[in-house]
Amino acid sequence: MKIINIVGARPNFMKMAPIIDAMNQHPEQIEHLLVHTGQHYDEKMSKAFFNDLGMPKPDIDLEVGSGSHAEQTAKIMVLFEKICLREKPDLVIVVGDVNSTMACTITAKKLGIKVAHVEAGLRSRDMEMPEEINRLCTDVLCDYLFITDHFADENLRAEGVAAEKIIFVGNVMIDTLLKHKAMATQLNLLSKLGLRKKGYATLTMHRPSNVDDKETLEEILGALKTISKDLPIIFPIHPRTRKMIEQFGLSHYLNMDTVVSGIWITEPMGYLDFLHLNMNAKLVLTDSGGLQEETTVLGVPCITMRHNTERPITCEVGTNVIVGNSGQKIIAAAQAALSGNGIERRIPDKWDGHSAIRIVDWLIKHESK
């Protein structure tokens, strides 16, 4: 069985790494290629992840770079079609919900190639999120839908997906976290930064709904500044967010030096450094998706600065709370977490480090020729 695995953006790397590891245990049954679309191509934001996760270099790099959603999607489709025609895979595996996920799915299906979606069935119900459009388009086309939890199963069934297409395997992102947790524990990043365990919060923020409007961004930064009076906030800043903060003249909310107080920005971090930072934090503030899952497993309170989540399981059993981008609500949630009024977490079913093995075993059983 010949498989093409697709990665395009940073979170894809963490999801694909354990799948490739599992495939490598079956060289007689599976021949696989790793295609990197180049959707995220910054050295600090992408290549560090290949190094940290021990992944092989991509067999093929499409190097599509940046552009509008339409430009990026079109470039990927044109280039990936050539790869499919040349390599003639039996199956394409896509992960997550980025433009590469949708573009490669459409391309493969139009060529009559089967597609499997890892992390299928997630829904935010927010059509202003490009990722939601990508999820919907991808799932309706895919032959196999590997899901993380019961919410995803319910979503897909409600959309009319046949039960035999839905396979509950757990969360491959957690495979990567559990594999690398011990390694991350050995790092001495905290001492390098002058931090103490549970003596700081970490922050990620990059979504357009939070950073593209000056009034919204300033309200969030003001709330974070208030929180940082009690707990320093470490902010590995996304290039997009840095650009908007500077463009709106809001840099005075951030500490630009190396004194750990207030909101202290750093450059984007590699996977292991960032895992080390989060597992030792008192609190995590984010607008991303994956961190909601990771903090649930790590047992760290997570405040999600969004109005919705495609990962409600993290609120049902984990440490995650959804607060939107209201400064008042962000402050209230942080105060509740810091006072110890958090919810008691449970680890979701099958978030046990073996999800990728389940995926590969299922594919060998059902697809091997």
Results as ranks from 00 to 15, higher is better:
Gly8Thr: 07
Asn12Thr: 02
Phe13His: 03
Met14Asn: 13
Met23Ala: 06
Glu28Gln: 15
Glu28Tyr: 04
Ile30Arg: 05
Glu31Gln: 12
His32Gly: 00
Leu33Gln: 08
Leu34Met: 01
Thr37Asp: 03
Ser46Cys: 02
Gly54His: 00
Met55Tyr: 02
Met55Phe: 02
Pro58Val: 00
Ile60Asn: 00
Leu62Asn: 09
Val64Ile: 15
Gly65Val: 07
Ser66Glu: 05
Glu71Gln: 15
Gln72Cys: 08
Ala74Cys: 09
Ala74Pro: 00
Val78Phe: 11
Ile83Lys: 11
Cys84Trp: 04
Arg86Val: 12
Arg86Gly: 07
Val92Tyr: 09
Val94Phe: 00
Asp97Trp: 03
Val98Phe: 05
Asn99Thr: 04
Ser100Gly: 10
Thr105Arg: 09
Gly112Tyr: 00
Val115Trp: 09
Ala120Ile: 08
Glu128Phe: 00
Ile133Cys: 05
Arg135Phe: 08
Thr138Ile: 10
Phe146Ile: 02
Ile147Gln: 01
Thr148Tyr: 00
His150Glu: 15
Ala152Val: 04
Arg157Val: 14
Arg157Phe: 06
Glu159Ser: 10
Ile167Met: 09
Val169Asn: 06
Gly170Phe: 09
Met173Glu: 12
Leu178Glu: 00
Lys179Leu: 01
Lys181Ser: 07
Lys181Phe: 09
Ala182Pro: 01
Leu187Trp: 11
Leu193Pro: 01
Leu193Asn: 03
Gly194Glu: 02
Met205Val: 13
Pro208Thr: 01
Asp212Pro: 12
Asp213Trp: 05
Glu215Val: 14
Gly222Thr: 15
Thr226Pro: 01
Pro236Arg: 11
Ile245Val: 15
Gln247Gly: 12
Phe248Met: 11
Trp264Thr: 15
Thr266Ala: 12
Pro268Asp: 05
Pro268Ile: 07
Met269Trp: 05
Tyr271Ile: 04
Tyr271Thr: 05
His276Asp: 04
Met279Gln: 15
Gly290Ala: 10
Val297Phe: 11
Val300Gln: 08
Val300His: 05
Arg306Lys: 05
Asn308Cys: 03
Glu310Asp: 08
Ile313Cys: 03
Gly324Glu: 04
Gly327Phe: 13
Gly327Glu: 08
Gln328Arg: 14
Ile331Ala: 06
Ser339Asn: 14
Arg345His: 11
Pro348Ala: 06
His354Asp: 13
Ala356Cys: 08
Ala356Pro: 09
Ile357Gly: 06
Lys365Leu: 13
Lys365Trp: 03
His366Ala: 04
Ser368Val: 11
Lys369Ser: 12
Lys369Met: 08
